[in-house]
Design a binder for these strands. Structure first.
Lengths: 202, 202, 202, 202
DNA sequence: AATGAATGAGTCTTCATTCAT
DNA sequence: CATGAATGAAGACTCATTCAT
């Protein structure tokens, strides 16, 4: 009975943490790191300041948690894309399209990663860069898996070019008026095409 | 005499403004928008708070001015690169290399543009985006000048991919240890190569 | 059986209360009143916040309890010293030495009484002062018991001088480096001597 | 003219600092370190929070300043007392009386030194102790100046006993009802007497 | 025109206390 | 009766901006 009680308590605690995390994701996405205040976040979460600090050491801490969760999501997206494609040459466009579409569907998260997480404390900067580095590393790994299919000067540089191209294209697309802009799918394909042409041999 | 006096006064005023602008560029570059305080900037400039507010409406205002000056510098860089190359096909790599090298040589400015100017007020966000938009427009213009030389889905998307690739590659290069990383010239060439391959026909 | 159960329950309750009181004494002694938090105390006691508030009305309440327990200890020390000495003239140094040695051996308690219980709420201030008043009263009583042996202007003032001398000498001794300072016994004797000379007739 | 302006400005700045210091002394004296808030102090001073932090690094800083000013006052009191008395034997009671009377006339300062400055941060504790140590050192110096006049085990211990006796007697006197208690002068004399008897040879 | 002291709104953060489980 | 998650009032501190000199 004591066990059950504890289990239920912990479940509720985790749920509360999740609620705070989601609220923070929304507020950071809309207002940025400095624009989102702790009272804002807890109001959005229907929680309290004290509760906030029971779950996260401070504001920086929850932002790092948001960023890390996002990093895991993207890692999953890329892994799934890889599985879907056995042809190495097609893996790159598949991954690029998946990533673009995921972020296009979750613009709040995209804003956090691309826009709002720059210029913060060294620790947060570090978390953000490690996400980008990780993705670049995955791209490089794909490139190196089939050297005959690809041709480029330096896999590391190529990976960063690819990641940068995706994010900037997305960022530009996101700020266009949703009524006038091209469809996410079309832009995703174009971006995938751009990078595939940059990489493939011949 | 009254006229001359005014002229001399205005010259001094402009000089003071320039000193403040340079100091602000340094402080924003090192500490970011939120990390750089007005007292910091005026101390760096050897000026005073009161003087600061005589020249700029507020902190946002001077940051916008820094950003705009940077935008003009980059426009000049790209224009010069364009002049140096008569062959349309070679204009792209020439411009990419020039931009990369300029930012690599002025990492403070690069930080401001890429890192520190994200997630700020809508107005500043706007200034920053307009710089990127402007560069993308220039790239698109070059692409459209010789349609037979290039091949791509959408010039606008291509332009943004190019700009994003340059900035992300640069950003990644900047944060590497200066002792271990490759030379700026080599990386600039690799980045130029990446984008040229993505764009050229055939 | 209902009775027995209640008795056992109350015994456990008292035991828990004792554990909390001891933990609080340690935490208050080390961190002071404001530095010791309720979560800290219950962690040290291996108890819980809820349990804490079942035993004590609030933080002030447990501090008062700690202080009162300490007051009782000192009263006992002084009473024992009194019993050991039949000669009224020797009672004063005997009591002074005993008190000094007791506090020197329990520096945590000494800190609470002398240092950490100052400047708190009126109620706590009151508890602390009543302890000192009580000891002064005991001293005064000893002095008045044999007027021929002692000589002084006012027994009340003399008593406070004595108590103040003991505490300040102790406090100064406590903050010296344990490796370099004189032995507790030697200092206790010197302090006892100081006050005996101040009090005795002739 | 620029010089005069600056001088006037600095004078006003110093005046403001003094006003804050006095207000802080009052508030700390009445409410203690933790009970006195920064908003309270600036309200009492007719100043503002920002101004407060332009003059003092933080709350701890202004408390240390208050304590140091108090330390200087007492040092002056003791030095004056020393000058007034050429007879070494009479210097001790003269100093004790002067100190007692000064603190009796400035109970707010006395409270700060004796009661409210205990159990604070290490830095403040240090400032407080250094004041007491300094006074004890002065007393010791007087004792050692004429060894034939005095007799005691250890001048350092004797000095602390004296200081403790004065403060505790004062503290007890201060909390008595002003209508019922003995006059400050009478108590000062009794305390001086107590310590003189404890110290003098024979 | 220049100066820098003064202002105070706005943030983060802590912790005593309550109460549902 | 024990537990510890939740609460929110309260306080220290920062910094953009103003204005008297």
């Amino acid at each position: 009975m004591a066990y059950r009680k504890t289990a239920a308590t912990e479940a509720r605690k985790d749920a509360r943490r999740k609620v705070l995390l989601d609220a923070a994701t929304r507020m950071f996405g809309v207002n940025g790191y400095h624009g989102a205040t702790v009272p804002m976040i807890v109001a959005e979460a229907g929680s309290s300041v004290g509760s906030f600090y029971a779950h996260f050491r401070n504001k920086e801490d929850i932002f790092a948690a948001v960023l890390e969760a996002l990093g895991r999501s993207i890692t999953d997206i890329l892994a799934e894309a890889k599985c879907r494609q056995s042809d190495p040459l097609l893996r790159i466009p598949e991954a690029v399209e998946s990533l673009f579409l995921f972020l296009a569907r979750n613009p709040q998260e995209a804003r956090i990663l691309i826009v709002e997480s720059s210029g913060l404390s060294p620790r947060l900067e570090q978390v953000r860069r490690s996400i980008l580095q990780h993705h670049a590393a995955q791209v490089r790994h794909t490139l190196e898996a089939d050297p005959t299919a690809f041709s480029f000067v330096d896999p590391d540089i190529a990976a960063h070019c690819l990641v940068g191209a995706v994010y900037e294209a997305l960022c530009s697309w996101l700020e266009q008026d949703p009524k006038d802009r091209r469809s996410a799918v079309a832009v995703a394909r174009a971006v995938a095409d751009y990078n595939t042409r940059a990489l493939r041999a011949g």
